[in-house]
Computed example of a mutant assay.
Amino acid sequence: MQKIDFVLTWVDDSDPAWIAEKNKYDVKQTLPSVRVRDWDFLIYWFRSVEKYAPWVNKIHLVTWGHVPTFLNINHDKVNIVNHSEIFDEQYLPIFSTTALELSLHKIPGITENFVYFNDDMFINKDVTPEDFFVDGKPKDIGLMSPILPVKEGVAHIVLNDLQIINNHFNRSDYLKHAGKFFNWRNGVNNLRSMILLPWNRIMGFYDQHLPLPLVKSRYEEIWSRFPDEMTQTIAGRFRSNSDYSVWLIRYWQLLTGDFVPRSLNFGKYYQIQDDLTSIVEEITKHKHALIVLNDNERLQNFENTKRELIDVFASQLTEKSAFEL
């Protein structure tokens, strides 16, 4: 069986030491609380991995330095990764997700193929290694879509990625792999790609915001090709509109044809709302293999919503995992 690691980035926003250090550098409070507030779902993330993906090789938990109180750090599959292990001292402390995501290949001992999770991404039913990689190639959605700027989005950063992409690829490159970009798995969504065919430039890709299957050697290639852009990003302590992101690596994988098409129905993205009807139905009926529960500024009642979601997860993942003390 192929070895595949999972990587999870996590912040304990209640840690007084972390708060003090963050405030020391973030004097203008530019880091919104919704980007870092903890929903206390992490214990269910580990339970879901044990239940639905017991084949995982290692789980690398990347943190500022704190460790979840419930976690059995002596479990042979758990590796706690301090930011200091992947960043030179001159760049620390780091509070930027883009910097973290572009440095995951530096995790000591990480496998060539790994899956990157945010802490709002969950496995919701049984998955296999082949759901993420086939013959070493990541499974992904090769679907074109223009980038649309929205208030809470990262369009500026994605446009930086696309500027590099358009310096090295054009329409002919994705037409070389037309069978991967236009296929039955995309259904009517193939129209997204077809509509953009008149333009020679790459105007964007459809991003599901799901856990990303990534390849270590592809990271190393991007760092080798664009050292200035990568260094510029990790030099910023906080996310900036001038950053580059992990999407650059994903887009490069797509346009070189170095991926295997996957169904759009494999995962589902949700914005957490005060009305949790659709999310509760998703978790209890296990409609999709992967789900994302994204925090946002429009949520009115954080504490009540948090308690309700914890109850739903607890009803589905009832057994204590070996990852717990």
Results as ranks from 00 to 15, higher is better:
1 M>V: 03
5 D>G: 01
6 F>I: 02
7 V>D: 06
7 V>Q: 03
7 V>S: 02
10 W>D: 00
13 D>L: 00
15 D>F: 03
16 P>C: 13
22 K>H: 05
22 K>T: 02
23 N>C: 09
24 K>Q: 10
28 K>T: 07
29 Q>W: 09
37 R>P: 02
38 D>L: 04
51 K>T: 11
56 V>K: 03
58 K>G: 02
65 G>L: 01
66 H>N: 08
66 H>K: 05
69 T>Q: 10
69 T>N: 08
69 T>C: 03
72 N>D: 03
74 N>G: 10
76 D>R: 06
78 V>I: 02
94 I>K: 06
95 F>H: 02
97 T>Q: 11
107 I>P: 10
109 G>W: 06
110 I>Y: 06
112 E>M: 04
114 F>Q: 01
115 V>E: 01
116 Y>S: 06
118 N>P: 02
119 D>L: 00
121 M>L: 02
122 F>V: 01
129 P>W: 01
129 P>D: 05
132 F>T: 10
134 V>D: 08
140 D>Y: 14
141 I>R: 11
150 V>F: 14
153 G>Q: 07
158 V>C: 14
161 D>K: 09
162 L>G: 06
168 H>C: 09
174 Y>V: 05
178 A>I: 09
179 G>A: 09
180 K>R: 08
182 F>E: 10
189 N>L: 15
201 R>P: 08
203 M>L: 14
204 G>E: 11
206 Y>R: 13
207 D>H: 15
210 L>E: 06
210 L>P: 07
215 V>T: 09
216 K>F: 10
222 I>R: 13
223 W>F: 11
224 S>W: 10
226 F>K: 10
226 F>M: 05
229 E>L: 14
229 E>R: 15
230 M>N: 13
230 M>E: 15
231 T>G: 05
244 Y>D: 10
249 I>M: 13
255 L>S: 02
260 V>N: 00
262 R>N: 12
262 R>C: 14
263 S>T: 15
264 L>H: 13
266 F>I: 12
273 Q>G: 08
279 I>H: 00
280 V>E: 13
280 V>P: 06
284 T>L: 11
286 H>K: 04
287 K>S: 04
288 H>K: 07
292 V>Q: 10
300 Q>F: 15
307 R>D: 15
321 S>I: 06
324 E>K: 00
